[in-house]
Amino acid sequence: MAAKSSLLKVILLGDGGVGKSSLMNRYVTNKFDAHLFHTIGVEFLNKDLEVDGHLVTMQIWDTAGQERFRSLRTPFYRGSDCCLLTFSVDDSQSFLNLANWKKEFIYYADVKEPESFPFVVLGNKVDVTERQVSTEDAQRWCRDNGNHPYYETSAKDATNVAAAFEEAVRRVLAVEERGEHLIPTDTVNLHRKPRSSATCC
């Protein structure tokens, strides 16, 4: 089912200013601009990659982080294969808000089994010297909230960025492989390509 080059939709969520757009740009274009405009509305970029022999096209969606824009971004959650929960290690509030982001995502993305849905947690800006969130605290949160993989990244100096996105792909593929044992192989994956899922005329 997930053979050949399949499209994975990955969405970056987190407070305003934690570096969602910078992570996306670092990963896709390998560039960093500290003065990049904050995102208004919704944007996405595609990136082709190979993970463990699987060719995938990752479609990375980047949204405006401010609470006010919730009604704009949430419609884009649907159909996501993975959610990257992002905070900034120099901003404890953004770390505290992770739970809210996760909740918002599960609610609006219409996730059927939140327990097995792949989340990856990114603690960004590790290049900054004045940390407000310790690695231990972040790891503990990830362990206590569904055993999510945790990556400390820096979009600025490219630390762990590719690793985090590749982990996202691995998690999605793992979930799908598990799923294949349960679902007959000829079913249409409604989740992936909603438009081709015509069940009737």
Binding site: G16, G17, A34, H35, L36, F37, H38, Q66, D91, Q93
Partner: peptide, 10 residues
């Protein structure tokens, strides 16, 4: 907090 972040990227 948000104003500080945003004026730095306007």
């Amino acid at each position: 907090s948000l104003i500080e972040k945003d004026v730095n990227r306007t």
